[in-house]
Amino acid sequence: MGGRVKSPLHFRLSECVLVLMIAFSGISLGFSGGGFIVNFDKLGFTVFSSLQKAVHAVENVFTGTVTAVRDMAHLRSEYQQLTEKLKDYEFLQRNNTEIRKENERLKEQLDFATEIKYRNIPAQIIGRNPDSQYSGITLNKGARNGIKKGMPVIAVQAGNVGVVGRIITVGVGTSMMMPVYDVRCNISSRIQNTRDLGIVSGNGSSDGALSLKYIRKRVMDDFNYGDIVVTSGENGNYMRDIPVGRISKITVLDYDSSLNIELDPIIDFNRLENVLVIDQYNENDREAQK
């Protein structure tokens, strides 16, 4: 009757302590038996090494990316430099080719200028006036170089010697010539093979044909297409036997006793750069030009 009654709180505390002691005993028994062993050193090393490996991999990726970008920039720079060098090389090659061609043209002209009978003045074309009613070609030589009005002008082109025109205006340092294709130009000429005499005149275009007039119909069978027409040397305007053009077309007109003959000029005027102005009244000093 007089016994003590345990409080609910005390009962629960005793039970919790009992559970904790049982759990601790079980854990201790497990560790002592070897079935519940954890190697904390090994665990820490594994975790750290894995983390280190991951960091190293990320670092390699980043370093590789930076290196690749740097190498790409370097390669791009080298490519641009090589491209510029290639352009410079191609430019030099073109210049060398042009210089070589120019030297060949000048040598060809010089060789002819040395051998020709008459004194001659080399000149370069510096201007053209193809759009006006009458054509005019400006040369870089004038009176102080010995050029006079009326002098004939010839050229050497691709191994061919041909008539270019005649000087019509002379300045101190420049002059102007009238080319053979000008409508005002008339040259006393002969068919080289037959020696038949006619007059060559221009049609106003550097690309057009020249006209040969006053060749009789009855001599038509004596010459052929491609035959060369040369200067006759008459009237003192041009030296004798300088090629003017090649026969390219022959037309027979019923109402005319003469043939209408077209010539392809010996000289390609669109490619012409250098000419020789001829002084027919003075012989060439060959020794002075060598």
Rank of each mutant, 00 (worst) to 15 (best):
D285N: 07
R144V: 15
A73S: 08
N224Y: 00
N145L: 05
H10F: 10
N274M: 05
Y134C: 03
G171C: 04
K101P: 00
H74I: 07
R218W: 15
I242T: 04
K117H: 13
A113E: 10
S50Q: 12
P179M: 02
I37K: 08
S28K: 04
S28M: 10
K53W: 12
N129P: 01
T83V: 11
G142F: 14
G3W: 06
I247A: 00
L210V: 02
G30P: 00
A123H: 01
T63H: 02
L13D: 11
G127A: 05
A155F: 04
K213C: 07
T67H: 08
L197A: 12
I137P: 05
I250Q: 01
R12H: 07
V153I: 02
L9N: 03
D279V: 11
A158M: 07
Y214N: 11
L18T: 12
I266C: 04
L106K: 13
F24S: 06
L92E: 14
S32M: 09
R216T: 00
V219K: 00
C16G: 11
I199H: 12
R94P: 07
L82E: 12
D131T: 09
V244C: 03
R100N: 07
F269A: 14
I22Q: 07
Q289L: 09
Y238A: 02
N237W: 03
V38T: 05
V200D: 12
V5L: 11
I278N: 08
L29S: 14
P8T: 07
Q52V: 01
R128Q: 12
F11L: 15
V172G: 04
K117P: 02
I187Y: 07
V229E: 14
R190E: 15
Y181P: 01
S211E: 14
R240N: 07
N203H: 06
V38Q: 10
M220T: 14
A68C: 00
V172R: 11
T46V: 04
E15C: 06
V244N: 03
N120W: 02
Q133D: 08
E78G: 10
I261K: 02
L110E: 05
G127P: 01
I168G: 10
K141N: 03
R94N: 10
K42V: 11
L18D: 13
I199K: 12
K149R: 09
V163N: 06
S135N: 09
A113R: 03
V5W: 05
H10P: 01
I278R: 03
E108D: 06
R144C: 06
L253K: 09
F36S: 06
V66N: 06
Q109F: 06
V183F: 00
K53D: 15
A158S: 11
S248Q: 09
F223D: 10
M178T: 05
T114I: 13
A209V: 11
V170I: 04
G30Q: 14
N284L: 00
S50M: 11
V170H: 03
I137V: 15
T174L: 12
L13Y: 01
G30N: 07
L272R: 03
E108A: 14
R70V: 10
A209T: 14
D268K: 01
K53M: 09
L276E: 05
E78V: 15
E273D: 05
N274H: 13
F48G: 11
Y181I: 01
L212Q: 08
R105I: 13
